[in-house]
């Protein structure tokens, strides 16, 4: 294809190939949100590493840090905190494209948040929608959003807005518990929002708030009783559930048994909640990660041959190609 273009448009070859690139940027699935509920599971490390991996493979990538607890994605890229942040977008209306700063990696830029940018009361719903609209319009092949921990509404909405919803966990009970909490909250919000169009938002809220009265113990039971009471909602709810696709990434595993937690969580999400979960991959626990963060030398650049770097490559490819992690028993 490209060769033909060169022959036909020799003089304007550069311009034309750029156009081809731009066309490709319109492809779907470009916004990835990285969340998962618990802090400290490695979301920021994974976001920066995936970003570097994609950029190194010729993609144009933008990272956005909306971690309310502590936006520090810049540190993981080995650069200082940029002076411009999302606050400039909210308060002064400065376009996102002008807030992006270059990093040491070609094709990889960063927009940082700060403590206030997505905090609970500091931004209004309309501002949030405006931010999402502007993010979607950005001309980048991939936009990776680091959500940080927690299950705040703004975090959940950003997660729901993304084309690829990536949830990171560690193989330990607190992270697993928080992940359930996070996913259930996100699902509840999604269902509520989509039933709003049918005038059922208040019904959902009412049923959930009065759940003891209606003998509803869980989100699953709420969904089931909605289906029962309002049979015409059945198809809509089923579609909402199967459209809710999440990709699980398991970080800091220490044994091959730990990997099974990824497959297990995937199964429970599918079988119990009825959503569409995939296990995208895992990363082994390695002190090199900690070292590279402390030294502010990104692992993907300085330890690119390490096992962790390879594992990041594997699951990023899995995410790109919608592949599932193959788990073999040892």
């Amino acid at each position: 294809m490209r060769l033909q273009i060169i022959i036909l448009f020799r003089g304007t070859y550069r311009i034309f190939s750029l156009k081809v690139d731009e066309l490709r940027e319109e492809e779907e699935g470009k916004i990835w949100a990285i969340g998962g509920g618990k802090g400290g599971t490695g979301k920021t490390f994974l976001t920066s590493s995936m970003g570097i991996y994609l950029a190194k493979n010729g993609k144009r990538v933008l990272l956005i840090d909306v971690d309310i607890g502590g936006a520090n994605l810049h540190s993981f890229l080995g650069i200082n905190r940029p002076r411009k942040s999302l606050t400039n977008f909210f308060e002064m209306g400065i376009p996102l494209s002008r807030l992006a700063v270059n990093t040491s990696v070609d094709n990889l830029s960063l927009i940082t948040g700060d403590v206030h940018s997505l905090a609970s009361d500091s931004i209004k719903f309309t501002q949030k929608l405006k931010l999402f609209r502007h993010i979607m319009k950005l001309r980048r092949q991939y936009i990776l959003i680091d959500l940080g921990g927690g299950s705040h509404n703004n975090t959940l909405d950003t997660f729901l807005m993304a084309d690829k919803k990536i949830a990171v966990l560690e193989p330990e009970i607190i992270a697993i518990e928080n992940m359930y909490h996070f996913v259930k909250n996100a699902l509840y919000r999604k269902i509520k929002m989509s039933l709003k169009a049918y005038g059922f938002k208040e019904v959902v809220e009412h049923m959930w708030e009065q759940r003891e009265r209606y003998k509803i113990k869980s989100l699953k039971e709420l969904i089931d009783s909605l289906k029962e009471s309002f049979s015409h909602l059945g198809d809509i709810l089923d579609k909402e559930l199967s459209d809710f696709k999440i990709y699980l990434v398991l970080n800091k595993i220490r044994s091959s048994q730990d990997i099974l937690i990824g497959s297990s969580m995937k199964s429970i999400f599918n079988k119990y909640l009825g959503i569409n979960a995939q296990f995208a991959g895992y990363i082994e626990y390695d002190d090199a990660v900690w070292r590279s963060i402390r030294e502010r030398r990104p692992l993907m650049l300085n330890y690119s041959l390490s096992r962790v770097a390879k594992e990041i490559g594997v699951f990023t490819e899995n995410l790109l190609h919608e592949r599932e992690m193959k788990v073999s028993r040892s």
Partner: peptide, 22 residues
């Protein structure tokens, strides 16, 4: 088969956080 059988028949670390509702 073995994974799922084990998963849904034991109270493992992935089941216990939702054992009360599942």
């Amino acid at each position: 088969y073995l994974l799922l059988k084990k998963l849904y028949s034991t109270d493992s670390v992935v089941i216990s956080p939702i054992a009360d509702e599942f």
